[in-house]
Design a binder for these strands. Structure first.
Ligand SMILES: [Zn+2]
Ligand SMILES: [Zn+2]
Ligand SMILES: [Zn+2]
Ligand SMILES: [Zn+2]
Ligand SMILES: [Zn+2]
Ligand SMILES: [Zn+2]
Length: 346
DNA sequence: GAGTTTGAAACT
DNA sequence: CAGTTTCAAACTC
């Protein structure tokens, strides 16, 4: 989702992402996009009776056309987009949030589309198997789950560790393969000191001819509102009391979607730095490629935040700092304690 | 690979 | 709503 629709006018500056700029203005979060992978991960299905036109079908639920699937009588194809869209509408009328995987058109939420907006209802799996979608998503069960005998609440054990499906090991072989270039880009809108809206495009790349690089482009845009959707940042972002103005690096924003789960978004600068420090590949291997925050978990409460923090080291991204959940309302700001870092220093 | 189990999605 | 059926994946053997 680029801002190509807007007439881009102004300057194009280059600067290092490692130099935190950004004033304490409102931060808008775009999505990370891996140029080599489709957002949300490619899905495949094996549907036999649904024609891949119901939410039973993972591909359809994820808003993807069936590709490399082994489905039968599949109608979830590009050349039948009319039928697809018709079904989508029908399902949307049944459940307004059915395809709400995106927030404000930008952020792909942790869960799969159309699933689990209200938590799981597991009865026999103790939420310890992939039958449980909370577990499958790698998150603890939360307030809205109605599960029985749940062992996925981070109380009596570590956070869920759904074993990665076989097929494409995160880091395996291919040592001779040329370092494929990977690019991570993301956009954000913010206001400059003059109050004008700007669109910032950040790019971090690794591999390829260049080793690692990062750049930033700044464009003036008419109004970000149209592009940001309902979750546009308030004109006046409520700053948590006593927070320093320069949280850019440590700041994380939590969106409390209508109901169930709180998704944690890392700030742009943080992710960009992380990409440079540990490498984009490592991030992808750790499931952070698209800011899939489920990889780190979700916090439904202050109490759950520490568990979230505890997962950071396990992700291999460094020793986590303290994550503080300052409040839990519609919008929450998580920040590191001053001087602490999520990622171990270089 | 066949058969079972599971819980979301769909249906009544 | 609740109860039932359908469905495709997760799981077991
Ligand atoms: Zn399908
Ligand atoms: Zn498919
Ligand atoms: Zn299909
Ligand atoms: Zn569950
Ligand atoms: Zn759950
Ligand atoms: Zn549970």
């Amino acid at each position: 989702m680029s801002y190509s629709g807007h007439s881009i006018v102004t300057d194009t500056s280059q600067q290092s992402l490692l130099v935190p700029e950004m004033p304490g203005d409102a931060v808008k979060l775009g999505d990370w996009r891996d140029s080599t992978t489709s957002t949300g991960g490619p899905k495949t299905c094996n549907c036999k009776k649904s024609k891949c036109l119901k939410l039973y079908c993972d591909c359809f639920a994820a808003g993807q056309s069936c590709t490399n699937c082994t489905c039968q009588n599949c109608s979830n194809t590009a050349d039948q987009k009319d039928a697809v869209e018709e079904m989508r509408e029908q399902i949307r009328s049944r459940n307004l949030h059915a395809f709400d995987e995106k927030i404000g058109k930008h952020y792909v939420a942790a869960g799969d589309a159309g699933k689990q907006q209200g938590g799981c209802n597991c009865k026999k799996s103790h939420c310890r198997k992939k039958y449980c979608e909370c577990f499958q998503a790698g998150v603890n069960c939360g307030q809205h789950c109605k599960c029985e005998g749940c062992h996925n609440r981070g109380e009596h054990g570590p956070p869920p560790k759904p074993k990665a499906p076989p097929g494409m090991p995160a880091v395996k072989a291919v040592p001779e393969a040329k370092p494929a270039e990977r690019k991570l880009t993301r956009q954000r809108s913010m206001r400059d000191s003059a109050g004008r809206w700007q669109s910032h495009t950040y790019t971090a790349s690794i591999g390829g001819t260049e080793r690692e690089s990062a750049s930033q482009q700044t464009h003036h845009i008419p109004h970000p509102e149209s592009a940001m959707g309902s979750l546009s940042v308030d004109e006046e972002e409520p700053c948590s009391p006593g927070s320093p103005s320069s949280l850019s690096e440590a700041e994380m924003t939590v969106r409390h979607a209508s109901a169930p789960m709180v998704h944690i978004l890392f700030s742009l600068n943080f992710m960009a730095e992380l990409a440079l420090k540990v490498g984009a590949q490592k991030m992808l291997d750790c499931g952070l490629g698209y800011m899939e925050t489920a990889a780190l978990g979700s916090a439904d409460s202050d109490e759950a935040a520490p568990a979230l923090q505890a997962r950071l080291p396990a992700s291999g991204l460094g020793a986590g700092g303290s994550v503080i959940c300052t409040n839990l309302q519609d919008r929450v700001t998580l920040q590191l304690k001053p001087g602490q870092q999520l990622c171990a220093p270089l």
